[in-house]
Design a binder for these strands. Structure first.
Length: 283
DNA sequence: ATACTTTCCTGGGCGC
DNA sequence: TGCGCCCAGGAAAGTA
């Protein structure tokens, strides 16, 4: 699932491949992928002739800056982009195609069809609601420990659920939430408002560190698809708990356990992070 | 207001 | 082999 590091890797790849390109036509094969207020017909119509000047990222959102529009793309679970010559046959699950002026296509593929595209006039790009609500980017310059501690103090939700909340900090998904909590040695089920100051500081530090290292490595590639942008990441080899169920904890050797926290598969070390039984509600 | 539940989707894994 | 069933999960919408 693409989280911030994977989306950032896709962004860099796209800039290199299609920065400066002009869209000559758009095909949408799954209408729900285009969010209101724009219909897929309108979406296809207004993008013709638009040049892709640059591509930015905020949290897990990609923002294509065109002449008159900001096109916002969220890959959700399985979204991918590829750039291919126009005469290449469509792969399965190709749902949106941007034809470019140089006989190439920018194609969007998504097995589960969860990804979304939105348009907003370029002069209103800062008013895009979902992005406006996002918390700080998880880097030292934006993500401040005081504000983080304040967010934690306001909720009794599980700490993992809280750091997955994009309004608390932007860009953390299931993989990096588990990795950050392991690095900070904090139980994923611990209520956010019960973290002490040292724990909050460790977690803040861990999120910044894990995300930065993953960005550096080009993200994590869980499944490999050739010729698809952002799929050559190397961080999966650095993962310590995610997907490591029943394997030895790299710190203490205890078997990594998998449970559910807020409907999400959650991996943790019951020794380093403590048993979840301390926090489980009675059934 | 907050917090929990449901919805969207399909491929893959499982049991029989 | 093949069928039916269930599950994964980010974010938005719905409900208590």
């Amino acid at each position: 699932m693409p989280e911030l590091p994977e989306v950032e890797t896709v962004r860099k790849g796209l800039i290199t491949l299609i920065g400066g390109s002009t869209i000559t036509g758009v095909d949408v094969f799954w209408n729900r992928m285009i969010t209101p207020p724009f219909s897929s017909e309108k979406f296809q119509e207004v993008l013709v002739g638009e040049q892709i000047h640059t591509i930015e990222r905020r949290g897990k959102y990609l923002i294509f800056l065109l002449d008159h529009w900001a096109m916002v793309s969220h890959l959700r679970m399985e979204g991918k982009f590829e750039v291919t010559p126009t005469d290449t046959p469509y792969k399965k699950h190709t749902h949106v195609v941007f034809h470019l002026a140089d006989n190439r296509d920018l194609r969007y593929l998504d097995v589960r069809k969860f990804g979304r595209f939105s348009l907003i006039p370029i002069e209103k790009r800062d008013e895009f609601e979902a992005i406006k609500k996002l918390g700080p980017e998880p880097t030292a310059s934006f993500f401040k420990v005081e504000a983080f501690q304040d967010s934690l103090s306001r909720t009794g939700r599980a700490i993992k659920t809280t750091i997955l909340d994009q309004e608390v900090v932007a860009g953390v998904g299931n993989i990096y939430a588990d990795e950050s909590l392991f690095q900070a040695a904090i139980n994923p089920m611990k209520p956010a408002n019960r973290l002490n100051q040292a724990e909050a500081e460790r977690l803040h530090e861990a999120i910044i560190d894990v995300i930065a290292r993953a960005v550096e490595a080009g993200g994590s590639t869980i499944r490999t698809y050739k010729n698809t942008l952002g799929e050559a990441g190397k961080f999966q080899v650095a993962l310590k708990v995610y997907g490591k169920t029943n394997q030895a904890c790299p710190r203490c050797g205890t078997a990594i356990e998998k449970t559910k926290v807020g409907q999400r598969g959650t991996h943790y070390c019951p020794q380093c992070q403590g048993p979840i039984s301390d926090y489980q509600k009675k059934e």
